[in-house]
């Protein structure tokens, strides 16, 4: 079985991935204007200040939209089909693309609450994925 791709940290994203290795999922914030964002950048994308910091996220989010892959463009994802990738908005504001771990994608809706989990990959990497808080299908509808 092949392994899912690992992140490729560069000088700009290095701190983000290093904190994840330590189990801390964080976003970047501007000390000058307070803007919060992902992915990591060398400058605040709102006021262009360079005094920025990483802040740990509480790990709560909502789903803005999603796509369900029925084809594995990388063979490492073949065993996961169908799998979901979504656009996620953290409670702190930043948005990111991330895997959505979900047994039944038909239950997903815009605005569904998501909880963070960290998925281990090779070389000690941890990758953020999100798990939807869904009503049990047998009990009726998701709200």
């Amino acid at each position: 079985m092949s392994h899912k791709p690992v992140p490729r940290p560069d000088p700009i994203s290095h701190v983000y991935w290093q904190r994840l290795r330590e189990g801390r999922f964080s976003y970047q914030s501007c000390r000058a204007c307070g803007q919060c964002w992902l992915p990591p950048a060398p400058i605040c994308p709102r006021c262009w200040a360079t005094d920025t910091e990483f802040i740990d996220s509480a790990g709560y989010a909502r789903l803005l939209t999603w796509a369900t892959y029925h084809r594995a463009y990388d063979p490492a994802f073949a065993d996961s089909l169908p799998y979901v990738v979504g656009l996620v908005e953290l409670s702190e504001g930043p948005r990111l693309m991330a895997g959505i771990r979900c047994d039944d994608p038909t239950l997903l809706r815009v605005g569904v609450t998501l909880n963070l989990e960290l998925e281990p990959r090779e070389n000690g990497f941890l990758v953020p994925v999100f798990v939807p808080v869904l009503a049990n299908k047998r009990e009726g509808h998701a709200d």
Partner: peptide, 10 residues
């Protein structure tokens, strides 16, 4: 970039 990490292709 890191999109492939999340399974986001194409």
């Amino acid at each position: 970039g890191d999109d492939a990490t999340h399974g986001l292709f194409g």
